[in-house]
């Protein structure tokens, strides 16, 4: 009984919980901001990179290699390292405008660099899943390679990868917490400060609740899309 009380007192004490909420919420708004901007950037950049990776012909080889090097590098490097390198390294370069950004800009940059690498692979899988006969049909009608990608391949690919794409975004949302290491006062960091000052943990639980509340709807929405597609594909099979 005592132990249970101890657990409650340490993690869920309503008074501390309430007291920490304004701070944690203020921090969480930064998480939201980083998440929204990084996701928008990732959506566009990753698609461009995936298209570059699929370009045909020997002339495009250097571009393809560049895209491969990029994805290999940023998929293989832990986000926390990228955050350190961008967050501390770039300001240290003293390159005027580039080196004088708000720390949150470096945070968003680190998130975008890493997640673009992941999402490029997702898009690429989608593009490759579009049957070659679709390209053959489009090219046979006199559409150029670019038109075929724009109107026939990419729209079908994007539709197919929405569930895994949203899955990666759940990861991105949580990883905004890592950006605290370069001094962005986001939810985790403020919660931790509060926790240290008060020697209890409800503030951290509060931060966790915010993250969970954000990801659950996205996860359910993803499930819904997957189920919807399965239903449609079954309907087509008959």
């Amino acid at each position: 009984m005592h132990a249970l009380h101890q657990v409650f007192r340490t993690f869920f004490y309503p008074h501390s919980f309430r007291l920490s909420l304004p701070d944690v919420w203020a921090g969480f708004q930064l998480n939201l901001k980083m998440m929204v901007i990084a996701e928008a950037l990732v959506l566009v950049l990753a698609l461009a990179l995936a298209i570059v990776r699929g370009l045909p012909g020997p002339a495009a080889r250097p571009l393809r290699v560049l895209a491969i090097v990029y994805t290999d590098f940023f998929r293989g490097t832990p986000l926390i390292l990228v955050a350190f390198i961008v967050g501390f390294g770039v300001p240290g370069l003293q390159l005027g405008y580039i080196s004088n950004q708000h720390v949150i800009v470096y945070g968003i940059t680190a998130l975008t660099l890493v997640y673009t690498a992941y999402v490029t692979e997702v898009y690429r899988a989608g593009i490759e899943s579009v049957h070659p006969s679709q390209r053959a049909a489009a090219r046979s009608l006199g559409l150029t390679y670019a038109q075929t990608m724009r109107y026939v391949v990419v729209p079908q690919a994007v539709r197919r990868v929405i569930p895994p794409l949203l899955n990666d975004f759940v990861g991105l949302q949580k990883d905004t917490a890592i950006i605290s290491v370069i001094g962005v006062g986001e939810a985790t960091q403020l919660a931790q400060q509060f926790s240290t000052q008060n020697n209890d943990f409800p503030s951290l639980v509060a931060a966790a609740v915010f993250f969970i509340l954000l990801t659950i709807p996205l996860a359910r929405f993803t499930d819904h899309l997957v189920a919807e597609r399965e239903r449609r594909e079954r309907a087509q099979a008959f």
Partner: peptide, 28 residues
């Protein structure tokens, strides 16, 4: 040179009208 395939190869994400008008609009 028009070609028609065994498996139709219509574009599944477009309506019938969009399937027929895509190439005339973009390439024709």
């Amino acid at each position: 040179v028009g070609i028609v395939f065994q498996a139709y190869n219509l574009f599944p994400h477009m309506t019938v009208l969009q399937n027929v008008t895509l190439a005339p609009r973009k390439a024709g």
